[in-house]
Computed example of a mutant assay.
Amino acid sequence: MRQGAVGHVRSVERHGRFLVEKRFADPRRRDTEVLALRELLHQGLPVPELVEVGPEAVLMTLMPGERLDAGSADLRLDRLRASTTWLRRLHELRPPGRLPSAPDDALTARRYRDAGGPALPLVVPPAGRPAFCHGDWTDGNLLAVDAGITAVLDWEAAHLGDPLRELSRAAWAAARKDPRSFDALVSGYGADPSAVRAWFPVHAAELWLWFAGAGPPEYLEQLTRELVRWPDA
């Protein structure tokens, strides 16, 4: 059994209690997840509780629910909209010290151009007030029962960053599955759609570089075809 989309995750039993064991290849990502979950324990967000932190693995409580996209397309939209309540609340929290810094988007733009990716209007928007960001607000990291969000998982990419950038990344990724997802997330959060769209080329370049480095090749080919048609991608 897996919860979340990153890392080596499995369900385990300890003294009659079912827990989730997560292993990390990078101890820095483990440390970030532990820092974030400890900070969020009493903040009201639906996150797992840490049970045991070891040098190679972390044990945490098993959260209820299914992946956000496990139901129908319309139910997914309702769940995306519901998730914005928790995303706003996260961004309003005081960030803990020692959170990693935001991704270097200027560096991403330079690397993308150097790698020969399809032409994009790569202008990095001015950063807003830094906030506590999850780092990967996607279907696989959100659990739901009916239309209610029951868990936000995989905090290993948490960082101090621009909340609008995080919303935009979630909206761009979600809209690649269903274009209606953009309105569900942006209107639910209460953001300016044009400001959200301004970040889209950055996310496209970031994902293209990821596929170029980690594959699989067919994903890179598909995304390349999409980006050649920008801004219709």
Rank of each mutant, 00 (worst) to 15 (best):
W155G: 11
W155D: 11
W155M: 13
E156P: 02
A157L: 15
A157T: 14
A157W: 15
A158K: 11
A158V: 11
A158S: 15
A158W: 06
H159W: 02
H159D: 00
L160G: 10
G161R: 09
G161Q: 07
D162E: 07
D162Q: 09
D162V: 09
P163T: 12
P163E: 09
P163N: 12
P163V: 11
L164H: 03
L164F: 01
E166I: 13
E166G: 11
E166W: 04
E166Q: 12
L167N: 06
L167H: 05
S168D: 10
R169A: 15
R169T: 11
A170R: 09
A170N: 04
A170H: 03
A170K: 08
A171N: 07
A171R: 10
W172K: 07
A173C: 01
A174R: 10
A174C: 08
A174S: 15
A174K: 08
A175Y: 05
A175L: 08
A175V: 07
A175N: 06
R176F: 05
R176K: 14
R176C: 08
R176D: 13
K177W: 06
K177N: 11
K177V: 03
K177D: 13
K177C: 04
K177Q: 09
D178H: 13
D178T: 03
D178L: 11
D178A: 09
P179F: 08
P179L: 08
P179N: 08
P179Y: 09
R180H: 13
S181L: 05
S181W: 03
F182W: 11
F182H: 07
D183N: 02
D183A: 15
D183G: 08
D183W: 01
A184S: 02
A184Y: 07
A184H: 05
A184Q: 04
A184R: 05
A184G: 00
L185A: 12
L185W: 08
L185M: 11
L185Q: 07
V186P: 00
S187E: 15
S187Q: 14
G188D: 02
G188C: 06
G188T: 01
G188M: 04
G188W: 04
G188E: 02
Y189K: 04
Y189F: 14
Y189M: 06
G190F: 09
G190N: 09
A191C: 00
A191D: 00
A191Q: 03
D192R: 12
D192V: 11
D192N: 15
P193H: 02
P193T: 04
P193V: 06
P193R: 05
P193G: 01
S194K: 06
A195R: 15
A195N: 00
A195S: 10
V196M: 01
V196F: 01
V196E: 02
V196K: 01
R197D: 00
A198F: 01
A198W: 02
A198Q: 03
W199M: 07
W199A: 07
W199P: 04
F200T: 00
F200W: 14
P201Y: 11
P201F: 12
P201M: 09
V202L: 01
